[in-house]
Design a protein around this nucleic acid. Structure first.
Lengths: 130, 130
DNA sequence: TATAGCACTATACTAAAGTATAGCAATAAT
DNA sequence: ATTATTGCTATACTTTAGTATAGTGCTATA
């Protein structure tokens, strides 16, 4: 193994910095799922909740506020009585498409790998606990 | 706004499921940064710590263990005295490259956007507080 | 002999993320 | 008249993530 150089380190920092900027905005269990739900068109609170299985109202409410503050979601008040609300993506959050696609593809790959390992263990009798 | 259909919902679920699989493995502030550090070659504990600015030894130790369990990192014991350890990516974690690239690109875009907003506010005198 | 590096672990703590449960004001449907 | 729906908020809580600080046994270097 060759020694880590200053050169390597600054190259690494260059890649790291923008990735961390992304992670700061997208962190947590729910933000990307909410955005994904909205990629299929603007939706109401309860419709998002139905898509994003397992989220509580409190979390959905909080995360939508966070996303709005970061300019990733807009809250639209639909005119008419009673007042209804819809959430939609912004052009900025639409640019997350490639991020979402790459995570989707990797997720599929990862699950495939897990299944393969599971089969291997079964056939060699190693399947003991977690 | 058209009503959310069953069709839409199952399409959404299809996209959501693998993304959540990815997020489950990659969640938190440190996992991707650690992996990024290792994309520049296998490294020792303290070298990773230098790249991933701000991480504590405890976190690094814990996250490396997690990543190892999930098959994203291998721990190599280098022979010789004193015993030295190096961490390296696996083929599986190398397949995260597209994920990392897309996050990097989006991070750059996001920061550009923030800077623009900041300038706008300055020029219209709205820069108050956070 | 002293100091620093390596690869950690231990203990104790704070802060943030997330859950559970309930309620509310308005309207719509039965 | 009753119940359900919508889009939330409030309170209280648990769990997980992350920080701070110290220490260990070893070796290499000055």
């Amino acid at each position: 193994m060759k020694k880590t150089t200053e050169e390597d380190h600054s190259q690494c920092t260059n890649l790291l910095k923008p990735v961390r900027d992304s992670l700061d905005v997208l962190n947590g269990k729910w933000k990307l799922p909410i955005i994904i739900s909205l990629t299929f068109g603007e939706k109401r609170f309860t419709d998002i909740a139905k898509d994003v299985h397992g989220i509580t109202d409190r979390m959905l409410s909080k995360e939508l506020r966070d996303l709005e503050l970061n300019g990733l979601v807009v809250r639209k008040i639909l005119d008419g009585y009673p007042v209804r609300v819809a959430y939609a993506l912004t052009p900025h959050s639409k640019s997350l498409k490639t991020v979402i696609d790459s995570l989707r593809n990797w997720g599929i790959l990862h699950r495939k790998k897990l299944n393969m390992e599971c089969k291997e263990k079964k056939s060699s009798g190693q399947l003991i606990g977690k």
